[in-house]
């Protein structure tokens, strides 16, 4: 199985792969994760300008079975709905032009991917070695900034932020994440496209 993924930030790559593998295993529990091949592209903070070349990379160059486009919805004044519609329209146009009929999933975490992680606070606490009985700090912060702050507080150089993201993602309880509508929608769409 070959999956294309266009994602936003520098910390997202490995974490998103882990989440996708967990979802695929829900449908195909006997699949060896090593047999899931990823073709990835980073949007460097915003995927919109990268949708066309990514679609070419996924379907023209690599014959992916399915591609996932993940875009946060946290971009300033633009409304969440408008941003989601714009990303979806760009993906639709790129697929029509380059890979008509290809299977794609557009995921728009609200407001950011990290919000999904906070659906399972226990995992975050365990990975960052925080007391499980105390609430996570900085609830007033935006999810990306909050997780970054918690990672910086963790203050260990043995794991980079990318590795911490990956470790959190690999231990997430997806059932808890389903409380987020945007995650549940993404999970169900992915399951129906693989």
């Amino acid at each position: 199985m070959k999956i294309g993924v266009l994602y936003e930030g520098k910390f997202d790559d490995r974490a998103i792969k882990r989440i996708i593998i967990k979802i695929i295993l829900q449908k195909y529990p006997r699949v060896d994760p090593a047999d899931i091949v990823f073709v990835t592209k980073s949007g460097g903070g915003n995927i919109e300008g990268h949708i066309y070349p990514a679609t070419s990379l996924f379907f023209v160059a690599n014959n992916c079975d399915c591609a996932i486009y993940i875009s946060d919805t946290d971009n300033g004044a633009t409304s969440v709905r408008k941003k989601m519609q714009r990303v979806a329209a760009k993906v639709k146009k790129a697929v029509e032009d380059l890979a008509r009929g290809a299977r794609v999933v557009v995921a728009c975490p609200k407001p950011e991917l990290e919000q999904w992680f906070f659906g399972d606070e226990l995992t975050i606490k365990r990975v960052l070695e925080l007391p499980e009985t105390e609430p996570l700090k900085y609830p007033e912060m935006a999810p990306k900034d909050r997780l970054t702050k918690l990672i910086f507080d963790y203050n260990s150089y043995l794991l980079t932020p990318v590795e911490i993201y990956e470790k959190i993602a690999s231990h997430l309880d997806l059932a808890k994440l389903d409380d987020h509508r945007s995650f549940r929608k993404f999970r169900l769409e992915l399951l129906s496209n693989i």
Binding site: F152, N155, Y157, L159, T160, P161, V162
Partner: peptide, 14 residues
């Protein structure tokens, strides 16, 4: 790329 991430992490902590 990973090594620079690692060095940045060490730099931040130290």
């Amino acid at each position: 790329l990973d090594l620079v991430d690692q060095l940045e992490t060490i730099a931040r902590v130290k």
